[in-house]
């Protein structure tokens, strides 16, 4: 069976241990995590986790069911029609061609967000695949540091 990439949202009670329960489930059952993000849902007692994973059909089905089986899990959404965004922060030396990098940033929903005496930081927010392209594109400017946020997604 072919492996596919899946973005899964998990709505969980915002309580102690819940992240450990989810990440432990993936570790214990040998599932992949490409990225995992979590933050509270405003105005509720729940948190929203977005997990990007990979596996064949049976594995993905098990992931969804096993996530659902956790007692604090309220809802599991296997995304199909979604808006998916990831953010990346990239630090460059101040010597780098800032105008070129800024132009690239704009193509990927981004901008220069900070600058200091020795460096400046560029940001882009886009689909995970496009973020990968962006990182590729700026590689020739020898970035000093790259931080990706992981994916967040919302069903349309």
């Amino acid at each position: 069976m072919d492996k596919v990439r899946r973005v899964i949202s998990v709505i969980v009670a915002n309580e102690a241990q819940v992240l450990a329960r989810v990440s432990g489930l993936f570790a214990g059952r040998g599932y992949n995590i490409d990225s995992l993000t979590v933050a509270p849902i405003p105005g509720s007692n729940f948190s929203h986790m977005t997990i990007v994973t990979r596996g064949n059909r049976r594995v993905i089905e098990q992931i969804v069911k096993q996530l659902h089986k956790l007692i604090p899990t309220y809802k599991v959404i296997e995304h199909e029609e979604m808006v998916e965004k990831e953010m990346v922060l990239i630090k460059f030396s101040i010597e780098s061609p800032i105008a070129e990098i800024q132009a690239l940033c704009q193509a990927y929903n981004g901008s220069i967000v900070n600058a200091g005496p020795d460096m400046f930081i560029a940001m882009a927010a886009d689909e995970a695949g496009r973020i990968a392209h962006f990182i590729e594109a700026v590689e020739r400017y020898h970035p000093m540091e790259i931080v990706r946020s992981g994916v967040v997604a919302m069903e349309r």
Binding site: R58, K65, Q66, H68
Partner: peptide, 8 residues
Amino acid sequence: IDPANIGK
């Protein structure tokens, strides 16, 4: 009773 057992 456990959906995760089905199709595992």
